[in-house]
């Protein structure tokens, strides 16, 4: 297969669902639904994350996300943001499955509000319960290769280690462990959280990740739609660089022009 064919046929599959875009975007923190929809469009994302919350009983005529982002065209990936126990997360996703009718979900069980760092004991426990109930669980987790294996063992369909704390925009803090997770996983690995700008997304893809999930990096950019385009390009560029196979690093210079024939 030559390089061109490789990129043309370059899809990824999670729990039997195949996608072309390797960028998953969140739908939080936008100025309004219209800007959110425009950013999703510009990102080329085929999956968006959504939260599960109480409906507004006092004013049900308020516009809702589904009016702007059509779940028939874009896969809604319900999350458990804000859940700090396995029980809360499981309850939330059971409701999400009824609300949407789909079983592909994103599990996150948080350990503390300050860092939003995952509680892996609760996360593994919830993954096991949900997998047994027929959910396809994509799991937000620590960048720990052993925990990643344990998640896979209990039925996670995708491993999603954080690159840095949620909403921090600090970029990938631990390339070594992300790469170890990629090498060891039999399911897709996506960096989830911590991306701040386009180069961070490219780094994740160059490490061999199957995709990147982000929200704040796009939503809090001065021009979210332009940043969404940048992220689309970065994910594609990083992926192609990974497939192309980068050159070996050298400690010193190596001239690109021939030494022979110098005047």
């Amino acid at each position: 297969m030559n390089a061109q064919n490789k990129t043309v046929a370059d899809t990824w599959t999670v729990a039997g669902r195949t996608f072309t875009s390797r960028l998953i975007v969140g739908t939080g923190k936008y100025k309004d639904f219209a800007q959110n929809a425009a950013a999703v469009e510009a990102s080329g994302a085929e999956i968006v994350t959504v939260a599960v919350r109480r409906v507004n009983i006092s004013d049900p005529s308020q516009p809702v996300l589904m009016d702007y982002i059509d779940p028939k065209k874009v896969t809604y990936l319900p999350n458990t943001a804000g859940c700090f126990t396995a029980e809360d997360a499981i309850r939330t996703l059971r409701l999400a499955r009824e609300a949407g009718g789909w079983n592909l979900v994103k599990l996150e069980v948080l350990g503390e509000a300050r860092t939003l760092y995952p509680n892996m004991v609760e996360t593994i426990r919830a993954t096991e319960v949900l997998a047994k109930e027929g959910f396809d669980v994509m799991v937000y987790c620590t960048d720990d290769p052993i925990a990643a294996k344990q998640l896979e063992d209990v039925g996670a369909v995708a491993i999603m280690p954080l690159g840095a704390p949620i909403g921090s925009g600090l970029g990938l803090q631990n390339r070594v462990t992300i790469r170890l997770i990629v090498e060891g996983a039999k399911v897709p690995v996506l960096v989830d959280a911590g991306v701040g700008t386009a180069s961070d997304a490219a780094v994740a893809m160059e490490l061999g990740c199957d995709g990147v999930l982000m929200n704040t990096a796009i939503a809090e950019a001065k021009d979210p739609v332009l940043m969404a385009r940048a992220m689309k390009s970065a994910v594609e560029a990083g992926r192609m660089a990974y497939l192309a196979g980068r050159m070996q690093k050298r400690r010193y210079a190596d001239p690109s022009s021939p030494l022979a024939g110098l005047i």
Partner: peptide
């Protein structure tokens, strides 16, 4: 379950949680 919403009768004292999807990361 969604399939039974039309069959289940509301009873005195019931406590409901009704959720939908909102923007989130």
């Amino acid at each position: 379950p969604k399939s039974t919403l039309a069959e289940v009768q509301v009873e005195d004292g019931d406590d409901y949680e009704i959720v939908h999807f909102v923007g989130g990361g």
